[in-house]
Every structure is written in structure tokens, then in C-alpha cells.
């Protein structure tokens, strides 16, 4: 499934989506950056409540299909600009990480 379809079906807010056609290969949920680096697979949607600048480098290097900020956590305008520059899809879910991940799982199972 394409990230743009997933975002639409799950009602996520799009902060910026430079690459709407990228395929979602699965998901990874977590806030500790080295765990994400070690465990997230290329193409995964990464669900996190972290919103500092470091998430952009992690997203780029881990090759995730999108960063999905959960809990409607606040995102600085500067982060959105960075995401745009680095071609990273940056989305936001109003729900907690568990509910967000559960919805991703259900959608991918279909």
C-alpha cells in the first residue's frame, strides 16, 4: 500500500508528503533512536512521539517510508522544513502510538 493511501484511510494529518507513492512495508514503533536504527526496516512507517531535529537524520538513514508523529504531539515548523528538504514524509496521528500501530497492522493485513 502507498503511504498516501494509508494516510488518507487512517485519517492522519499530512504535514508534508514529498514522496506520496512510496510503498509501506510494515511499521516500527519506538522513541529510542538507536532501537529505531537497529530494528526499523526500509519502507516501514515509523511511529513516535519524538519531534526533535534528530528524528530527521534517523528517518533518512533508516530509510523509513514516513515518520508518523502520534498523540498529536506538537511539531515545530523547522522540522517540517527539514522534512521537505530531505524528502521525508511527515504525518501526524491524533491517537496514541499503540492505537496508531494497531490501525496500521489491520490495514496491512487486509
Amino acid at each position: 500500500m502507498k503511504i498516501s493511501e494509508m494516510a488518507q484511510q487512517l485519517g492522519w494529518e499530512t504535514l508534508i508528503m514529498p514522496d506520496p507513492d512510496v510503498e509501506v512495508t510494515g511499521g516500527y514503533a519506538g522513541d529510542l533512536l538507536s532501537w529505531v536504527m537497529g530494528r526499523a526496516q526500509a519502507g516501514n512507517v515509523w511511529m513516535t512521539i519524538m519531534t526533535n531535529r534528530n528524528i530527521m537524520a534517523v528517518a533518512t538513514l533508516a530509510g523509513v517510508s514516513a515518520v508518523v508523529v502520534t498523540e498529536h504531539a506538537e511539531i515545530d515548523g523547522e522540522i517540517v522544513k527539514l522534512a521537505e528538504e530531505q524528502d521525508i514524509n511527515l504525518l501526524r496521528s491524533a491517537q496514541p502510538t499503540f492505537e496508531t500501530a494497531y490501525a496500521v497492522g489491520k490495514l496491512l493485513e487486509k
Binding site: 522513541d31 529510542l32 533512536l33 538507536s34 532501537w35 536504527m37 537497529g38 519524538m50 526533535n52 534528530n54 528524528i55
Partner: peptide, 15 residues
């Protein structure tokens, strides 16, 4: 608080 300090960096480098 920035998300570092899991103690997984060196193990990841090794792996």
C-alpha cells in the same frame, strides 16, 4: 530526552 542513551549504538555498529 532527545532519544539517545538506549545503549544500542555500539551493538548496532558491530552488527
Amino acid at each position: 530526552s532527545l532519544g539517545f542513551g538506549a545503549g544500542m549504538g555500539l551493538p548496532n555498529m558491530k552488527r
